[in-house]
Each structure stands twice: as structure tokens, then as C-alpha cells.
Amino acid sequence: MAAGGDHGSPDSYRSPLASRYASPEMCFVFSDRYKFRTWRQLWLWLAEAEQTLGLPITDEQIQEMKSNLENIDFKMAAEEEKRLRHDVMAHVHTFGHCCPKAAGIIHLGATSCYVGDNTDLIILRNALDLLLPKLARVISRLADFAKERASLPTLGFTHFQPAQLTTVGKRCCLWIQDLCMDLQNLKRVRDDLRFRGVKGTTGTQASFLQLFEGDDHKVEQLDKMVTEKAGFKRAFIITGQTYTRKVDIEVLSVLASLGASVHKICTDIRLLANLKEMEEPFEKQQIGSSAMPYKRNPMRSERCCSLARHLMTLVMDPLQTASVQWFERTLDDSANRRICLAEAFLTADTILNTLQNISEGLVVYPKVIERRIRQELPFMATENIIMAMVKAGGSRQDCHEKIRVLSQQAASVVKQEGGDNDLIERIQVDAYFSPIHSQLDHLLDPSSFTGRASQQVQRFLEEEVYPLLKPYESVMKVKAELCL
């Protein structure tokens, strides 16, 4: 049975990233139509530049190519590739079939990587351009969430054990800070992308030097003109047959890092959902379990974690691919890159769409948070109580021993009897502590235990987050809708 299948058929496997999760716009960027249309555009740009620099290419040939950029006979191309065992030459023939007058000058002087690699770089750039505003929107939604809850005390956790208090907004800023680093890295790697350009079979530009009869300047002009037509500021000066596969490492490393950030955020949300302090959106008709109707599973956060793990592992592909590119190139890269580049971007696209949807509907339960604080705060307040007693004339050592005994009794009630923490009640009825009984409410005010959390939130948002989001103001209103 021949390899390949009808990918629109229910009898043929289709990647869930495309069929179930990723956005239509990201799927289109990695589609065959987008790819092969870009090949034709690159052939047109090459012909236009070659004509401008004096090669015998007519206006009629150029116009014929322009008129057929979208006229792609995919069936013919597939048949040609089956016959020739070469995808680029299959599309040269297919393009030439609908451009008979231009057929002889299509791909003039070029090698397969002229269309293959340059198209990949265009796709990487455009895919990054799709991700950047999506990530900015996630940051914006979380920034709104953090600002609104900047002063809401909550129990902090280290080692997932109760620690000092923080605020809900401050905790959210930990998430935002990681995503801001990801946004900066995505922008950097996007701006650092260079075009492969017009380089020939081993990167020496020998074929173009021959076409222009040894004119170095025209060869350099050709490279520059096509690079500018493709919208790049610069091209690699040095290439082998391909652009260095280190570029793929750079791009997928940034995406993998984004995956790590999203995994951490969504894990926190899942843990908070278990504590009943916070939940992701839950639709009115949504079913959490087929057997347990009360369940409210954090399905979206779980999906993000599941896909983020996949995204983090994909960076190993370009690392290994770059390491086995012998001399000017081997074909070890080809099949692998067809999979890992598309999957990385479709996965990143999915987790950003999902995280935006989550961040637009996060639900906080202040009463649950308050109750958990009441359970733990008495123990945390013991040092403040000791200091207040010393100020009232008591002995630190005597007070410490009193607190120690009462704390152990209260802990026994919590752990052995399943009761509430009654340390404060014990202190309130103990005559030894009568000098500070009137101060206990103040000493137990949760806001006095959150330090500068709310001020940190305000400063972080104003100095770091809002300036970073400013270039994306025009796209901030787009909502994230999930079908599944």
C-alpha cells in the first residue's frame, strides 16, 4: 500500500493539533497551500530580480507567473513527485505547466533550498508574528487579574506546605514575570531571523556568478533584492546548502521555554482548584465526569500541561538535527523538520489560546482563602504575639514557653481530632496574655502579614508589564474561544 493518505478522510490519521486544537490561522501558515504558494512567490521574486539585473526574462513571463501564483494543481504535483521522487522539481514542473512561456526560467540558477529553506524562514517569521500578540493578550488578562487582587491576602506555599502570606495578585505576578520573559525572547528570536537568500547549491553562489558572467556586484544585488522582497532586513552571508540548523534550535528553545512557563502556571491553577481557592472557567453544560456528576475538573489547565510537556520535548529534535548536518548538509534534517517545526508552533498556539481562555474567566473564592488563612495564621502570628507581650512588660522566655504549650495543644486538636485551630481562643482565655487581649485582632490582621506584596504588584505592572504590552494595544480586544 502506498504511503500517505487522504487526510480529510475519517479513515486516515490526522494530527489532533490540526484537527482538534490549533487555530485556523496557525494551521494555514503550515498548510501545503501556504507552503507551495510561497515557493511560487519566491520563484517570481527571483525572476523579477534577475530581470532587473539584466537576464533575458520578459515582462510577459513575469506576468504569467504572477497570474498563476494561486493556480496550484495539487493532484498534478503529487503525481509528479511520485514520478520524480523530488518535491521541488515536482512543483517546478507543475508551475511550468500553467506558465508555459515562463517554464524555462522558473528556478533559474537556484537549488531546492532556495524555495525550501527560504519558505521555512518566512513561515517561522509569520508563525512567530501570530504567537506574539496571543502571548501579549494572556499577559494582559493576567495583569488585569493581578491588579484587581493585588491586596487580597492568601496563604503562600513553599514545598506545598503553608508559608508566609502573600497576595493573590502577587502570586499571579510570578506567572506574568515568566511570560514577559517569554514574550521578550519570542520577539528577540523573531527579529534575529535572517533570510537564507540566493546562495546556490553549497552556499557559494557559483551558479549565479556564472549567470551574471562573473559580476560579483550583481550577485550581491540579486541576494539583497530577493531578501528585501521577502520582507527581511538581512540575509546570511555564510550558508551551506541550507541555512544553519542552529536557527531551528533557537526558535524551538524559546517555544519550549514558553511551554515550561505555561505548565507551571496551569499546575498552580490545578492545585488551587483542589484547594477550592480558584477555578478555571466551567461552562453551564460542561460535564466533569461521566460517573461523578459533582466533579469540576480543571480540564483546560490539564490540557495545557499535557501539550506543554510535548512542546518542551520537541527542542531535542533540532538539537540532534543540527549535530548531524555533515559538511554542507545531509538530508537527516528533512523529514524531522517537516514534523517538529509545525508541531512546535501548533502546540504553542494551542496552549496560548487555551491559557487566554482560562485567564479571561478565572474565578476566585475569597471566603475559602480566608478560612485557610484562619487555619494557619495563628501559628504564624506567634512571633508577633511574643513581641507584643514583651512590649507590655512580659518575659520573652516565659511567653515563648506559654505559646509553645498552647500551640501544641491547638495542633493536637487540628491533627488528632480534625478540629479547627483554636490557638487564639486559648490565648484569649489565658490570664497571662490579658495585657494584649485587646491587640489580638490587630495582630491577626492578614494584611499585616503580606509585606509589600501589593506595592510590588503595582510597581511591576507599571514599570515592566504595561510598557512591554504597549506595541500590542491594537490587538488586545480579541477574545479566545474554545470549541473543545
Rank of each mutant, 00 (worst) to 15 (best):
D333I: 00
R40V: 00
Q397S: 09
K391T: 14
P153T: 06
L44A: 10
R452T: 14
P298V: 04
A77K: 06
V390Q: 11
V168W: 06
R296Y: 06
L174W: 12
H263W: 04
M316C: 09
D11A: 08
L255I: 10
L84G: 08
P471H: 15
K134F: 07
P281H: 13
D6L: 07
A102S: 13
I237R: 10
R149W: 13
R40W: 01
F157T: 03
I358Q: 05
L275K: 03
L272A: 11
G231K: 11
F232P: 01
N126K: 12
T244C: 14
T202A: 11
M278A: 07
A348N: 06
P366C: 03
H437G: 07
S290M: 02
F160M: 07
L131V: 10
E417Q: 14
D332Q: 00
R171N: 00
E79I: 11
T119S: 15
Q205R: 00
H86V: 00
V405P: 04
D87A: 02
S112D: 01
V88F: 04
H107S: 01
L311V: 08
Q41M: 14
E228G: 09
R426N: 09
A102H: 01
R372L: 02
Q456V: 05
Q456N: 06
C266G: 10
S434N: 11
G361Q: 11
K479H: 15
H7W: 10
I176R: 01
K218A: 12
G104N: 11
C266L: 13
G5C: 11
A150V: 08
T38N: 05
R309G: 03
R303L: 02
W175K: 05
R245D: 00
R33S: 08
S253C: 14
R171H: 05
I369T: 08
S290K: 03
A453E: 03
I237N: 09
F212R: 04
V92N: 08
R296G: 02
A335F: 06
E279Y: 05
M312T: 09
S407E: 03
Q456A: 09
I72F: 12
M387L: 11
C98I: 13
E328H: 01
G200D: 00
R190P: 03
N297W: 04
H107E: 00
L255M: 13
G116R: 02
V368I: 04
G418Q: 03
A291G: 02
T166A: 06
D398E: 10
S412V: 15
M380C: 04
T94M: 14
T313Y: 08
T354L: 15
Q439M: 14
V465P: 00
Y472R: 08
D73E: 09
T267I: 14
Y13C: 14
Q409E: 10
L183A: 10
V219H: 05
M181V: 09
S290P: 01
R171C: 00
S434V: 09
C180D: 04
L186F: 13
D333W: 01
L183Y: 11
E328K: 02
E250N: 10
G214K: 10
I386A: 06
A146Y: 00
Q375A: 08
E50Y: 04
F95V: 08
L406Q: 07
P471L: 15
L258E: 04
P435W: 05
T239E: 00
T58S: 14
D144H: 14
Y472D: 11
T52G: 14
S438F: 09
V168G: 02
C113Q: 13
G200R: 01
K402I: 08
L128I: 12
A411K: 10
R190N: 10
K264S: 06
E79N: 11
E50R: 00
E283C: 13
H400C: 05
E283G: 12
P298G: 03
H107P: 00
A308W: 03
Y13P: 13
V413S: 13
K224Q: 08
G451T: 02
P378I: 07
